[in-house]
Design a protein around this nucleic acid. Structure first.
Lengths: 236, 236
DNA sequence: CACCCTTCCTGTCTAGTTGACAAGAAGATA
DNA sequence: TATCTTCTTGTCAACTAGACAGGAAGGGTG
């Protein structure tokens, strides 16, 4: 970093959020319908501009989430995806956006706030096969967010963040299957998960309202990094 | 992203670079000695501010590298590490820095440029055990860059980017050992690398100026993602 | 030319892990 | 009781990683 002082170029800083959750065993992402130009009426990731020069970036992200979808995710961990700053990504001028990823268990239906006309959960089907395009470069940001979540499932206990506690190992398996888009063998999954020390801890036992044998309940263990990792099946 | 228009907060955008290379089988990072306040005289990562509102961020990174160390890395891939934007990271005001990682084979000795008093290669020993602290939050950025390089060695052909072509498999092994900070069994390493399709391709055969049996030469193969991955020994 | 030294390369053995699949356990329901 | 569903455990073959030995291919030295 050089030490000159001169009149700064006019660059706006924005934040964008990729909020993922599981709804009826499918991966969903939170989108808003834009209420203002540009891209009015199109879907976009929730986000907005930094208010003041000394506002923390994560705080700005949480604030925008409150304003646009009436959601409070201040307890959740926001993981930074990176900065998206192509010179032409916003027709209004130079905007550099810093994107964050968050994983949430069951969430209330979002309500539209001030800036956005509508907020809604949409299936996060493989971004390449999406029919509708998102505003700005948000298709790219969403794809990066999903890919980040996929790789983080392997080496971190992120999957438990999708599950309201207590959860069964079948619940946990559904998370992996939904995010990775694959089917896993139940027996092998049990062996693997229970063989990772500190991944999950037993709780009581409760029968689920479904049919079949009752499932044991677990809660998230103390470990955040998994050894050995839970690797996804190799594709090529 | 919301659509308001108002006077933008005064925020400066900077770029910082983590340039890693191997020198005499040890991992080194390019640092500059700052020639201006703040942190004058202290070591820092090369980098600087965006010149104009429409300058591409990667272009700015390469330009700063030319200015500060007379290095041209325009052929190299710059991977973004993320944005570092804590409100108090720079005493001059609000600065958000976007950090990039680059891997380079043998490079010429850098020469100090305009902004920096001196540019030099320093051993990138484990950042925690460093004796000198870098300026700003560059210790954190450097640590993140090294960690990113470590994980990328497992699943990408990044290691070949450290090696001038053609290289021997011993050269390649030294890359893994230096970046990971571990010793690997030579025989097992051979078996592993040659078992990954498209990782390395044979070239001619040349005896190295050292003693011992001549080594076969290879060049980087077409694959950038490795299947199966080259996993590092598990620590815990 | 023996002989040793160094480094490269290949082979073998064991222990552990993965994937496929079967079978038992524990409830609900007819 | 029989049957259905789902959870849980067990088994077996195929594969992989780590440890290690030993041969191959040069150079150096008497």
């Amino acid at each position: 970093m050089s030490g000159e002082t001169w009149s700064p170029p006019a660059i706006l800083i924005a934040v964008d959020l990729v909020i993922l959750t599981l709804r009826s065993s499918e991966l969903h992402v939170l989108l808003v319908e834009r209420g203002t130009e540009p891209y009015r009426g199109q879907h976009a990731l929730p986000g907005g501009f930094l208010n003041t020069a000394d506002e923390d970036i994560v705080d700005a992200a949480l604030r925008e989430l409150r304003e646009e979808a009436n959601l409070d995710l201040s307890r959740l961990h926001l993981e930074q995806l990176g900065a998206y700053g192509g010179p032409d990504r916003d027709p209004r001028g130079r905007v550099i956006s810093i994107a964050y990823l968050a994983i949430a268990p069951e969430l209330p239906e979002p309500v539209a706030g001030t800036d956005a006309a509508r907020a809604l959960w949409t299936p996060a089907a493989d971004p390449l096969s999406r029919t509708t395009r998102l505003a700005f470069d948000h298709d790219q940001i969403l794809a990066d967010g999903i890919e980040r979540a996929r790789t983080k499932l392997e080496r971190t206990s992120l999957a438990t963040a999708f599950c309201p506690e207590p959860f069964t190992l079948s619940d946990l398996q559904q998370v992996y299957e939904a995010v990775w888009g694959v089917r896993l063998d139940q027996g092998n999954f049990y062996r693997k998960v229970r063989g990772v020390p500190g991944f999950v801890l037993p709780a009581g036992e409760v029968r689920r309202p479904t049919k079949g044998r009752p499932a044991r309940l677990y809660k998230a263990g103390p470990r955040t990094t998994l050894h050995p990792p839970v690797v996804r099946p190799t594709l090529p």
